[in-house]
Design a binder for these strands. Structure first.
Lengths: 242, 242
DNA sequence: TAGTGGTCTAGACCACCTG
DNA sequence: AGGTGGTCTAGACCACTAA
């Protein structure tokens, strides 16, 4: 048996999707809905909260609950470098892992002071038996917090940074673009220079907005696609069986 | 003055971020929190609901509320073809808009029967004064539902499809990859053949999962980057001022 | 002033899990 | 049996909006 608040949410959304209520319209007031379902305010509000979460409603104090156009332009996506290897630890080859002086771009991205050093890590990622991506990552070097080679090889960058910085949670900023392969990347990826690459740039920040890691993943265009769906829809699947 | 439920949520999240409570730990039970804050169950639960929504908690009936690792691999992104033009209607040039027989790929993507026709639309998108993307879109042809040329030119594909199919909401499935420009695309985008492109493939589905539109946007790699952030973080900004 | 949503109370009963 | 989260009640008071 579905809870009542759930049924209220479904009824409303079905009226929206059926066209009886249109975006911009005002829903019946909460007290009206209480009467309609012979229930109390908290229950009605619990139902409406589901819809608000899904982006179907906007509540305006003193006025009412308005139906909203759902967003088609907000997309959610799953990305994790280790996805490329389909989870096979054998799919990762550590090329380098050193402590070094950062070049200006890296220093800038990590907002580091002049003399600070960084940990640099270069990995090749294989999907099946084929090389698929070259991954280069940087993080500020923190004295006395060594990285264990076995660990760093197989975990995603975000986890690595969280562990290294002893952080619970990190903000992950990702930039996606296409580029042509240069000499180095091309040879590592066994493609010809100039071939198209999907480049995924990642910057990790602490809760205080301090950059904790930065790097790029150069992906062979024949090995990686990213998939995203409108956030709206994900919510639906989780919250309402539509 | 912040509402109490909000303060409860903040207190808990600060304990999480401060390390006093770790992922996997059990929160104090709801009745304990009621006592601690001298409040009632509904208020405590309202606070915990915020955290659950943000992915910080998992509630297990009969057991308790567990602290969760935040997801670093779920990203949210904004994408809308019209973003490319920075909202300038002058930034769109309609090259073609015709009713035609679909080629096999299009028919397959739209799950169309043999003889069905499609509306095809080709547009050039300019950012500032420079050509930035070539956009090709297909939708099933529905008799008696003409598209008004002026309309189709300037609205995003998702809106167009919603309007044409008289749908309230559409599911938007996006695939992102890199590719080399072929002759046609290269000439339209004023780049040399083989240049890297960012290709954004869009499929729009009705609530019943029926394909309502499909197409690709070929973007000059020097004109478009996509940005995404961990979903976690967006929630924080909306729900808690951290 | 009357209606709206936002917050909150002090209970209740249920299904679930553990000893 | 006793504790947990999940649902729900029948009120209350507040801030906001509109006429």
């Amino acid at each position: 048996m579905q809870p009542l608040y759930y049924r209220i949410a479904e009824d409303v959304i079905n009226q929206i999707k059926g066209g009886q209520i249109k975006p911009g319209d005002l829903l019946p007031s909460e007290s009206q809905l209480c009467a309609e379902y012979s229930t109390s305010k908290m229950t009605v509000r619990q139902g409406l909260a589901l819809l608000a979460r899904g982006g179907y409603l906007r509540s305006v104090p003193g006025k009412g609950n308005f139906v909203e156009y759902p967003r088609y332009d907000l997309l959610t996506m799953h990305f994790d470098e280790m996805d490329i290897t389909s989870g096979y630890p054998q799919g990762v080859k550590l090329l380098e892992a050193t402590i070094m002086d950062p070049d200006p771009q890296v220093r800038d991205e990590l907002s580091l002071p002049k003399k600070a050093k960084v940990i640099m890590m270069k990995r090749l990622l294989y999907s099946e038996t084929q090389v698929a991506a070259l991954d280069i990552k940087f993080m500020p070097y923190i004295k006395g917090k060594p990285l264990i080679e076995k660990e760093i090889q197989y975990i995603p960058f975000a986890k690595m940074v969280a562990k290294h910085g002893e952080l619970f949670s990190v903000k992950n900023e990702v930039t996606i673009y296409a580029a042509a392969a240069d000499q180095e990347v091309a040879s590592k990826l066994e493609i010809s220079p100039g071939s198209p690459l999907l480049v995924i740039e990642q910057k990790l920040l602490s809760a205080e907005q301090k950059p904790m890691g930065w790097g790029k993943t150069f992906c062979r265009s024949d090995c990686l696609q990213l998939h995203a769906v409108s956030a709206q829809y994900i919510q639906d699947q989780k919250l309402l069986n539509l």
